[in-house]
Design a protein around this nucleic acid. Sequence first.
DNA 1: CGCCCATTTGACAGCTTTCAAATCGCGTGG
DNA 2: CCACGCGATTTGAAAGCTGTCAAATGGGCG
Lengths: 249, 249
Amino acid sequence: MFDAKTPPLIPMLQKLQLWVSLNEIEQEAVLALPHAIKTVQASTYIVKEGDRATHCCLLISGYVFRSKILVDGSRSILSFHMQGDVVDLQNALLGTSDHNVQTLTPATVALIPREAIIALAHKYPNIALAMWHDTLIDASIFREWIANTGRRNALARLAHLLCEFALRSEIAGIGKRTAYELPMTQEQLGDASGLTGVHVNRTLQAMQAEGLIARTKRTVVVVDWTKLARAADFNADYLHLRTETNLAA
Amino acid sequence: MFDAKTPPLIPMLQKLQLWVSLNEIEQEAVLALPHAIKTVQASTYIVKEGDRATHCCLLISGYVFRSKILVDGSRSILSFHMQGDVVDLQNALLGTSDHNVQTLTPATVALIPREAIIALAHKYPNIALAMWHDTLIDASIFREWIANTGRRNALARLAHLLCEFALRSEIAGIGKRTAYELPMTQEQLGDASGLTGVHVNRTLQAMQAEGLIARTKRTVVVVDWTKLARAADFNADYLHLRTETNLAA
DNA sequence: CGCCCATTTGACAGCTTTCAAATCGCGTGG
DNA sequence: CCACGCGATTTGAAAGCTGTCAAATGGGCG
């Protein structure tokens, strides 16, 4: 649809059009957003808690996560992101970042100045709505995570995390829900589920013993999706996927 | 500024103007939103998970909370809301509600049709930004809650909840940070912090014994704010209050 | 081949949960 | 004005899930 050297912001445009259809002028406006492409290695910070918000970050390839560090030094992982996700779109409006954004793997990102996002939203209501929509789904996932860590046991928590990552990987086009890459360490899985790395290890083994999943390195194979989803109390509604996608558990 | 019988949506307007200043036309547009005032008793559902999203809810008086019920029957409380909060603004864009909204106390709400919100956002970019901003802060609070239940012990979790409620009550003008009404039961506090009601009870007593708080019925007196905030690892930044408010812990 | 980080494993401690039962608070009815 | 009833708060004792602390094993990379 767009010529030449495939503009880097295409993934962002695709993402936004999942929620709101944009006309040609709007599409071009999105692609014309000023941005800086950056390639960074694993474990590097893209944004730090307390930073003045200056830009949003479109993840072009690789994985990143958002986190908070507590006074006792423990870490809480708030979300994982993959190819095509617009991370920290909130930075466009909130003045200060309330959490870190860090790469999980080597990654390529496009950094978009906050002012450009605001100006775009101002000029094109449809685009504003689409971006707003995107952040609302973000929030929905946060809500599910609150319930996940607050009220589920270790096995269900991890199973839920695996189900979510499975579906999102499939949608992002980097895996199937029954076989995908899980790029984080067990300690990071623990930080994301309110568990310790040690217990994540034992629980993953239990899931394997129960025939829910199989693992090789950082690849997960879901042996029985229905069983896994049931163990996780997983219901994909909170991801607010379009109904056509039909990804119900 | 506006004449006569004080329009019911004034609290919403004030809320939005915390984030973005609106001109007179925009202000009037907000106040002119169609809405239905409803008074409901305690414990009644305003929105149920799975409901088709039809309206947003401005809380005029009373307290409400958002929750999810898991398959095993346990409940997770996702947020508490008080006077002036616009609850479930997300319903304007997301098609289906992914959680319940329920009153904690008798309450008066103004229900605003989703289409009206969208139309307003379409017509007035500034208002759209303000509403977007509001939901972003919502999301920021969710993130803090993930860290809270995921990585803090019982005492810190509750202390954190108390600090947040204290500040928000103060801002809403219904209490002081050192003395305010905490309208929920201990079981509900547990559902909001990933604990059981029984343990909430013991922990609250411990906080009292340590001279952090004092309680009479549902009223909390913060004996030593600094100590409480420290015990909670509380940093108000995530509430994204305007700096003038100067509410740092 | 050696180093370093991630994964495993074991034993034990500990924070929270469970399950009851006892109290308390308070609005209702006699 | 006092008794009754029901939900919320307290309290106890015991079980259990998850955390802690080390140490061993494994795998990838220079």
